[in-house]
Amino acid sequence: MNTRFSWFNATSVALGFAFLYIPILLLVIFSFNESKLVTVWGGFSTKWYSALLQNEAFLDAAWVTLRVALITATVATVLGTMAALVLVRSGRFKGRTLFTGMVYAPLVMPEVITGLSLLLLFIAIGMDRGIVTITLAHITFAMCFATVVISSRLVTFDRSLEEAAEDLGASPLDAFFSVTLPIIAPAIVAAWLLTFTLSLDDLVIASFTSGPGATTLPMKIYSSVRLGVTPEINALSTILISVVALGVIIASLLGKRADINREI
């Protein structure tokens, strides 16, 4: 591979990253703007962040979002682990291909359709829409992502490790908790963080499945922006970006560590 520096490569990289990150960078910069006008720089200030803390509506929405995301991430990771174990471990059973396809399909399903179909389901069974329905909907689509992350780790997991544990006197359950789980733990944490961030920033599915009194942060931001962009929104978005970026970075670092352990 040619790794020499060339102006062409440097320019391509710079342009690519500029395309991706200049909008976000602008948003972050203007969240520290003194002026109330979003496009005019009026000096550095953190007053919009403190204003945010006074805004009850935003805080309520943030609390709803956080609760939904925590429950979603936990339940989706547990379900995802179980699905991944079945997909990777149980060899060939009747309908395995169908099952695999059905687990992965929601990954590529348009969110609008997932949201709409869930809405129809909740109406059909007469379920009151609110925080519970948002959480259920989020678990539904987040579980697929958790399954993908965990099963990709399980595929390379050497079954003889579990057999060795059982050979040395461990029960199958003991073998799972003392050998399998610690080894796939990085993938499980990564799946949790991924599903947490997915739930945190979802707008479409939440809009379909929420009811009165249950407004998530992305929904709140979206509705506020329609009345005009304020620096307060910029501040809020900056915080969201930080949380999501942190989650993704930790998830990828854990993935890397798992790779190192895997080389045995």
């Binding site: 050497d158 003889s160 490790l161 057999e163 060795a164 544990a165 461990a170 050998v179």
Partner: peptide
């Protein structure tokens, strides 16, 4: 396998990567 007075040395060695050498030996 857990109940048999028979132990096996696996072809892949199957050492537990998250445990130290001493902990591996102490596992059983």
């Amino acid at each position: 396998p857990a109940q048999r007075p028979v132990n096996m040395m696996f072809q892949s060695y199957a050492l537990f990567p998250h445990l130290s050498v001493g902990e591996n030996i102490a596992f059983g």
